[in-house]
Design a binder for these strands. Structure first.
Length: 662
DNA sequence: TCTACCGTTA
């Protein structure tokens, strides 16, 4: 439970009544019920004013005291509720988080009209419209819109803004926009002393509109509105930042976060929670560190939500130690917090530790979710813990009652396939109650390549190409399999087929962050301003590597090139270019951190191992699926990636996409 | 009497 939400509600404390001193002393519903009983006994309850006050107490007190069931009873006992009482009960019900209560508010509103004894006023419509918004009842909302016009309340700011809100939450942005413009027009006619208040209210309405476009996935319209805003609140910034982050536009989210600070708007709790996933995906540890320090500096409470985002950020940025540290320091942990640390440990190859945390989670009596099991099964897969993985999968399906999802089946296929149990993996797929998707088949195909089962590999690849004829992944996987067997004729055939069908492989792309700036490299990239120096460094690296007897595995290099231009001497993978750039741009011994959008290839893996020794650097590399910590000639993944199933396999469960159009 | 909008794991 978040304290900021709580504070927002504290304004509607029990209402002291001037007419009824005994109501004024009521603190809890218990007190109220006693007074109410007395009023019934003395007949005073028949005083409409007294009854209205009782109703108001139970309907609109702060949440712990609020009792809508009791409020409804009080209301139903009223012989002739006045407009005030109708408004009270409708407002309380329309405000409720309980699923069916906003609908009851709408029903009461209709009853109010049907009695014909009271007319709705300008205080009735906002609640009625809110009830339409909450229940998604556009038709009723439109009818109420008509009544608003008939009663002449369209010029009331509250009525109007609730109309906009109703259309927005029903997803009808065109109508919302027309009314929104009308309200913006009205603002100019206001008297001076109301100007500020109106504008403050207006910012919220802009935010509502932005949120509406975001919910429809129309980020362009949302950003246009955001850019046009006369002033932006912290919520406006948060809306856009989270919109970008949640739609995979991570760089844009970070950019906006920076713009926000340039505009001197102080990030708040929600800002940090929103921007952290973008930082994670881009692997920007420096910025992530800054966010953590900032939260501590301005005393933003690190609760389980912000904590989960920080844990995720540290593990995805390569610093699993810090992730564990944050986890251990949290006063509260929810299921997402546990999932974040378990997945983090899994992607760092710390399977045993991931399983330890899983048992700790059980002991802490936090019920695991399906996401927890994806993390745990991934850990087993990375460590080759076939037996444990099987047990855990069956435990999930049979004991916890969680329905295994396609991701869980994918983890199992990956686990079995990597261990060389290809037939069992295939049987497993055939017995799945869900239709296998391309991810599952790619996992099996990768395993076929890894264990040299060309017969099964061909079968799976054909299925894959039928299933996803435009996905480069299956073609690349098939071609990789032939390449690993040295069947160059078959490789060429697949490549030709890709060319004819105009299927392009995702370009490899690596990022490295230096002094808060992200440097991005593609395969064979020479667009960087230091391209010359980088290439000199790459050549030096090659020389150093051959001095220690390293022979490049060129098959992989060629396979990852988009063009058939194999003659070029500059055919370097993006991760090597990023490492070269890191080496020449930082002081000796500075650790390097690289983030890649695809899986690292075997050749880069072997050479970067040696480079870490030759140049005495710790190099942390995050690829599409997991981390590699190169140090002193070896890698933390224990060569898990060798014979990588394929560059394009997204793997099961965890996978990172960098958010670009791939 | 009506005050809204933004958030974590896969």
């Amino acid at each position: 439970m978040n304290s900021t939400i709580y504070k927002a509600n504290t304004s509607t404390s029990p209402h002291p009544s001037t007419f009824f001193p005994e109501l004024r002393t009521c603190k809890t519903m218990r007190d109220l019920k006693q007074v109410h009983a007395k009023m019934i006994k003395t007949g005073r309850i028949h005083d409409p004013l007294a009854a209205a006050e009782v109703l108001r107490f139970c309907a609109l007190s702060d949440p712990p005291q609020r009792d809508l069931k009791y409020a409804s009873l009080v209301f139903n006992d009223m012989e002739q509720p006045n407009c005030f009482s109708w408004n009270t009960i409708i407002r309380a019900l329309s405000d409720s988080n309980n699923d069916n209560e906003p609908l009851e508010a709408l029903i009461l509103f209709c009853q109010m009209l049907l009695t014909g004894l009271v007319e709705p006023n300008r205080f009735t419509f906002p609640s009625a419209l809110k009830a339409c918004a909450r229940t998604g009842r556009l038709e009723e909302g439109k009818q109420i819109h008509g009544m608003v016009i008939k009663y002449g309340f369209l010029s009331d700011e509250f009525v109007l803004s609730n109309l906009v809100r109703m259309y927005v939450t029903c997803g009808v942005m065109n109508d919302a926009y027309i009314l929104f413009n009308a309200s913006a027009g009205m603002e100019n006619l206001n008297e001076m002393n109301l100007e500020k208040r109106r504008q403050e209210g207006n910012v919220v309405l802009w935010n509502v509109m932005i949120d509406g476009y975001v919910r429809l996935g129309n980020l362009k319209a949302a950003k246009q509105l955001f850019d046009k805003m006369p002033q932006r609140s912290v919520v406006s910034w948060n809306s856009m930042i989270s919109a970008f982050a949640q739609n995979g536009l991570f760089k844009e989210a970070i950019e906006l976060f920076r713009d926000m600070q340039m505009a001197n708007v102080r990030p708040n709790y929600v800002t940090l929670v929103s921007v952290l996933p973008a930082i994670s995906r881009l692997g920007m540890l420096d910025l992530g560190n800054w966010v953590h320090l900032y939260a501590e500096k301005i005393k933003i409470e690190i609760d389980e939500v912000l904590g989960s985002a920080l844990i995720d950020m540290y593990s995805k940025c390569g610093s699993i130690e810090k992730a564990v540290q944050v986890f251990e320091s949290l006063p509260q942990r929810n299921v997402i917090t546990w999932n974040a640390i378990i997945s983090g440990l899994a992607m760092h190859g710390q399977a045993k530790k991931a399983l330890d945390y899983f048992s700790r989670m059980e002991r802490a009596e936090v019920a695991p979710s399906d996401v927890t099991y994806i993390g745990v099964l991934n850990a087993c897969s990375h460590a080759g813990l076939v037996h444990e993985g099987r047990l855990i999968f069956h435990h999930m399906a049979r004991i916890t009652g969680l329905e295994p999802r396609i991701e869980h089946y994918g983890c199992m296929v990956d686990l079995l396939g990597r261990a060389g149990l290809l037939d069992e993996a295939e049987d497993f797929i055939l017995q799945m109650p869900i239709k296998p998707d391309d991810v599952i088949l790619k996992a099996l195909l990768g395993a076929c390549k890894m264990h040299g089962n060309i017969e099964m590999g061909k079968r799976v690849a054909e299925l894959l190409m039928e299933m996803a004829p435009n996905d480069s992944g299956s073609y690349v996987a098939l071609s990789n399999m032939y390449a690993s067997l040295g069947n160059w004729e078959a490789v060429a055939r697949v490549r030709l087929m890709m060319k004819e069908l105009d299927i392009r492989k995702d370009p490899g792309c690596s990022l490295i962050e230096l002094d808060g700036i992200i440097h991005e490299f593609l395969v064979e990239d020479d667009s960087h301003s230091s391209a010359k120096e980088i290439h000199l460094m790459l050549e030096e690296m090659s020389n150093q590597l051959s001095l220690v007897g390293y022979k490049p595995d060129t098959t992989q290099v060629f396979l990852n090139m988009d063009d058939e231009d194999k003659g070029s001497a500059l055919c370097y993978h993006s991760e090597k270019i990023a490492v070269a750039f890191g080496l020449i741009s930082t002081a000796p011994k500075t650790p390097l951190r690289v983030v890649k959008n695809l899986r690292i290839c075997d050749d880069c893996h072997s050479s970067i191992k040696l480079i870490s020794k030759i140049y005495n650097r710790r190099i942390t590399m995050r690829d599409r699926k997991r981390f590699h910590q190169f140090e002193n000639g070896s890698c933390s993944c224990m060569d898990y990636c060798l014979n990588n199933p394929t560059e394009s396999v997204t793997g099961c469960g965890t996978s990172f996409a960098l958010g670009r159009s791939e």
